[in-house]
């Protein structure tokens, strides 16, 4: 642990020094870029609500709201549909052509239609985030179900399990590692989509929205502060799922090298 802190501080320091020197040697224009010596105080000011026009904590709340809106629906629909598609041949054959056709469309390409249809609302942002995170969750769940070893299903059958019990007691737990992979990948994409969706001004708050406003103000130190904030929140979110996965997948310890 101590060693880890040591490495983190070394690598962050090197990066900051590099950035600072780069600014003073090549840019030297406060309207184009800001050095860390300016970004760090700005970030502290923003996060402690000391700026009159940029309220970072409020923006975090709004972005998390958009994220929750889109990501939770992607979770519910993606996991259930993935389970059903993995479980039933017919449904798989019926749905996979649609999935394969829609999946390659980038979430960002959905923004115009989403705004036309849902106007500039939180739901419009949620929809973009849903599109982005739905497919990784669906595909990983389906893959998990498809790769459940046949022998586990046979053991359950010989022990007298019903079809529903097989789903609940074999298919779902056996697919859990794969589902969690889908959740983590999906959450990452969802968080990227939050920024993209908010850029278009679906609401007057949100990290993605403010980053664009700050650009219009020609305030790179605020833009970068928001970038840092987006990175930190995304990192925290991923760690939440990592923690949940390690709790739920305790049985995998000793089976795989993490």
């Amino acid at each position: 642990m101590k060693l880890r802190i040591f490495y983190v501080s070394i690598s962050v320091s090197i990066f900051l020094i590099f950035w600072e020197t780069f600014y003073y040697f090549f840019i030297r224009d406060p309207f184009l870029l800001a050095p860390p010596s300016k970004v760090i105080p700005t970030f502290v000011k923003l996060i402690t609500l000391q700026d009159p026009s940029f309220k970072m904590p409020v923006d975090i709340v709004f972005s998390l709201y958009h994220y929750a809106l889109g990501f939770s629906s992607a979770l519910i629909i993606g996991i259930s549909l993935g389970l059903l598609m993995g479980f039933s041949r017919t449904l798989e054959n019926l749905l996979s052509p649609i999935v394969e056709l829609i999946r390659p469309i980038p979430p960002i390409a959905w923004i115009p239609i989403s705004i036309l249809l849902l106007k500039l609302t939180h739901t419009a942002a949620g929809f973009i985030i849903f599109i982005g995170s739905f497919f990784p969750i669906l595909l990983n769940t389906r893959h998990g179900v498809a790769s459940v070893e046949k022998k586990f299903v046979e053991v359950a059958l010989t022990l007298g399990a019903s079809r529903f019990e097989i789903l609940r007691k074999v298919i779902i737990p056996a697919s859990m590692p794969s589902i969690f992979t889908g959740i983590r990948v999906g959450s990452g994409v969802a968080w990227m989509c939050v920024v993209a969706a908010e850029l278009f001004g679906v609401s007057a708050y949100g990290l993605g929205y403010q980053i664009e406003i700050a650009r219009l103000y020609h305030a790179p130190e605020i833009v970068i502060s928001y970038m840092v904030c987006i990175g930190l929140v995304g990192y925290a979110l991923d760690n939440v799922y990592k923690f949940l996965a390690s709790r739920f997948l305790r049985w995998r310890r000793g089976l795989v090298v993490e």
Binding site: K151, P173, W251
Partner: peptide
Amino acid sequence: FQDYALFPWR
């Protein structure tokens, strides 16, 4: 089964 086929998650 020959290879036990225990449920690893249980």
